[in-house]
Design a protein around this nucleic acid. Sequence first.
DNA 1: TTGCTTGCAAATGATTTGCACTGCT
DNA 2: AGCAGTGCAAATCATTTGCAAGCAA
Lengths: 146, 146
Amino acid sequence: MTRDDLHRSAEARLADHEQRYTPNRRAIVETLAARANPVTLPELLRLRPDLTQSSTYRNLTALQDAEVVRRIVGGGEHAHFELDEHLTAHHHHLVCVQCGSILDVTLDPRLERRLDRTFDDVAVQHGFDLDGHSIELFGRCATCRG
Amino acid sequence: MTRDDLHRSAEARLADHEQRYTPNRRAIVETLAARANPVTLPELLRLRPDLTQSSTYRNLTALQDAEVVRRIVGGGEHAHFELDEHLTAHHHHLVCVQCGSILDVTLDPRLERRLDRTFDDVAVQHGFDLDGHSIELFGRCATCRG
DNA sequence: TTGCTTGCAAATGATTTGCACTGCT
DNA sequence: AGCAGTGCAAATCATTTGCAAGCAA
């Protein structure tokens, strides 16, 4: 998906939720797309000093509701944010338990398909209406291992 | 593992970290063992009104450090706590995106073995020293589906 | 008596919100 | 005009911490 497609998709998703694709929101999407990995709010503000903290939190919430952005908790103090899988590819996370950084990883598509089938079965057994799944691998990153 | 074994293991793990197995800590372990699913701190305090908030947070931290308890983030406002897999069986979580409740689930051991191998490979490729993994399935629970 | 634990109250810090203002539409 | 979006400052709330007292080795 090109950068233009990305913005068009983001705009369309926001429109579905009666939200505008403002310059600030575009800046957030642009920045998340430029980074390979999930970023925290402080990182986002450092990359885009023109953005404000409270409005960025608000915009991230709007973008989440529109399924443009996904919030990831568990990697350190701050939540991490990344583009939703609607706009990128399905992937999982390698989380450093020491520094909290998060790396994207993908699995073999055949394995993913098998997992999907298994997870569907599990959900049905428990009466759940399944939305999706996430896999996190925990460890120490190359940098923290020293 | 019997309830006595559980407490002995907990005590041994705490001892390895030069920590005592106090009545409060025993109460926490006892309560987590009695519940099938991960609980939040408010739930824990409701189940055991004799426990204090701050000390319980401190004790949960000590129990975490000793790998007796595991903290799970992402299921609603509060963190959830459960006995560490050292004391129970390897399992994953079915998280209700609406009410935040968490259910334990297990996967077929063959699938788990395949996942372990795959995850090891992925970690090596990224220079990570792998500790473990977690899988969360997101959806709406039977109750919230109405 | 030395030091881990505890309970209370106060602090911390990420995230949220109130409010007035700006700028689309 | 009407209302979504913004920025600032203040509030919220789960979690953490300071401190004085309790208790075990």
